[in-house]
């Protein structure tokens, strides 16, 4: 009979160690792979267009993001706080430029920019095309001196944005010799493709 008793004893307290080990592994995996959304993405919401076969991933560091929202505003941002401080004079500032003089900029009403209707970051408006061009160059120069790396340029356009704004931006980029850039898109699913 003592044999039976002995067998029961270990079963009473379940050894959780392997279970915890596995969970810790999964936890570590998610902590390491987690990517926190950039501040900018929260403040200015855009609906990304879908595309099918872009296999390149969005670069993570040293990125200059140019966001075009559906009002035709262009927002320029870099992911380095020192560069922003250096160029805009404000560590959380966000540069904005409205290329089309015939329409009103959308950023005057914060509810145009995101659902919350408030901007956490102050907008530094550029009304002059030449100044905006200088800004793009300054961002890159400042990044080179502060971080030691050149910026990669990504363009995040809203689905509903007019191509005019994108064309204006492309012209500005060409004039500032920023000829390599990428459009950010969402991966298209097969159902959407058939539309």
């Amino acid at each position: 009979m003592p044999a039976v008793k002995k067998r029961r004893k270990p079963a009473q307290a379940i050894d959780m160690t392997p279970y915890v080990d596995v969970i810790m592994l999964i936890l570590t995996f998610f902590i390491l792979t987690a990517q926190f959304k950039a501040e900018l993405a929260e403040d200015i919401q855009v609906k990304l267009p879908n595309s099918g076969n872009d296999t390149t991933k969005l670069p993570e560091r040293n990125v200059m993001t140019l966001v075009i929202n559906r009002f035709g505003d262009i927002f320029a941002d870099v992911d380095n706080i020192n560069v922003r401080e250096d160029v805009l004079g404000d560590p959380i500032g966000l540069a904005a430029y409205h290329p089309d003089s015939t329409t009103q900029p959308g950023w005057t009403n914060p509810s145009n920019l995101n659902d919350k209707g408030e901007m956490k970051r102050p907008i530094v408006a550029f009304n002059d095309r030449e100044k905006f061009k200088k800004l793009l160059i300054d961002f890159r120069l400042s990044s080179k001196s502060n971080v030691g790396k050149d910026l990669r340029i990504v363009v995040k356009g809203d689905k509903e944005a007019d191509i005019g704004a994108v064309q204006d931006l492309m012209e500005i980029m060409k004039e500032t010799k920023n000829t390599r850039f990428s459009f950010v898109t969402d991966l298209e699913t097969d159902e959407k493709e058939k539309k």
Partner: peptide, 13 residues
């Protein structure tokens, strides 16, 4: 964690 990482379309002017 964001599962659908945005893709990029490379453009060279």
């Amino acid at each position: 964690s964001t599962l659908n990482q945005p893709q990029v379309m490379q453009i060279n002017l």
